[in-house]
């Protein structure tokens, strides 16, 4: 299943119908490389302050202008991408690993634990996440670690639920029932039957969660609860520079656009992943 999922996805990506998604994927790759290589790029120091040149518009020296301390906005957007994408990626990893474990375990734990655990998970999934994140960060204080931990934990129940549902349907398959009747242990079943069949659904859920986590990080940083200055992140830059839109409207718009294009690209790629997973949706 894993190989067919991947090959179908790659084939679809090549087709003309999905030009937008392949362009989006290419864009994401470029952004990822730029962000990862930011310290090596021949761009200005994102922390270099120039108080004689604050909030200036786009110019030859600063293509996207400068911020409230005269720092180069283009350079800060590229370096900010490291934080925004890095936090979202780490949070997805955390949510994915914990959520998958939780989901699979619940799936093999017997009906009583199942009922209670899923009821709790349903409640947490249904509640609006941002309020939970907001309280946690406001009370614990911002910072990179807290930020990743909070976002990761918040999206963990969603993973658990998706994985649990899939596990349950796998569990009911005939050859799994057969293996159980032959005396296969729970751990053997989880390793050999459940996990291999889960990769595709995990991939789709991860792409959805990645875009949510990006937006969550941006929203929290916008409110001042994310990474601390002078380290830039996109949401935080918009949050600070929106205070100066009457002096220089562009400064707040540029980092916002960076975030918007990345989320758009992630959504386009995610749509395609979903289509490949559910062929009937494609018509």
């Amino acid at each position: 299943m894993t190989t067919t999922f991947l090959s179908t996805f790659l084939r679809e990506l090549g087709s003309r119908r999905n030009l937008a998604a392949s362009a989006a994927l290419l864009f994401l790759l470029v952004v990822a490389v730029l962000s990862a290589a930011a310290p090596l790029l021949p761009i200005q120091d994102p922390l270099a302050i120039d108080t004689l040149n604050i909030l200036s518009g786009p110019s030859q020296a600063h293509w996207l202008g400068t911020d409230e301390l005269g720092r180069d906005i283009l350079s800060r957007i590229i370096h900010g991408g490291r934080i925004s994408l890095g936090v979202a990626l780490s949070a997805v990893l955390l949510a994915g690993v914990l959520g998958t474990l939780l989901g699979v375990l619940i799936g093999f734990c017997g009906p009583r634990v199942e009922a209670v655990a899923m009821r709790l998970i349903d409640v947490f999934v249904s509640l609006p996440e941002i309020f939970v994140a907001l309280i946690a960060l406001a009370l614990l204080g911002g910072g990179l670690g807290t930020l990743i931990g909070t976002i990761g934990l918040i999206y963990c129940p969603q993973f658990a639920r998706v994985v649990y549902n899939m596990t349950r349907s796998i569990r009911a398959r005939e050859h799994v029932l057969a293996a159980r009747s032959l005396g296969a242990g729970r751990l053997w079943l989880i390793r050999h039957e459940a996990l291999p069949n889960l990769y595709s659904i995990i991939a789709v859920q991860a792409s959805v969660t990645f875009s949510f986590a990006l937006l969550m990080e941006a929203g929290l940083s916008f409110l001042g609860l994310g990474v601390q200055p002078p380290t830039p992140s996109w949401g935080q830059m918009v949050g600070i520079l929106k205070n100066y839109i009457y002096i220089n409207p562009w400064s707040a718009v540029f980092p916002g656009l960076a975030l918007f294009f990345v989320v758009l690209a992630v959504n386009l790629v995610g749509d395609l992943l979903q289509d490949v997973l559910n062929p009937e949706l494609r018509k």
Binding site: I245, P249, A252, G256, L257, L259, F260, L264
Partner: peptide
Amino acid sequence: VIGFSAPVFVSGVILVV
């Protein structure tokens, strides 16, 4: 898709501008 992908505060800031 654009509307769906634009974060609330990004469209908010653009609307204000």
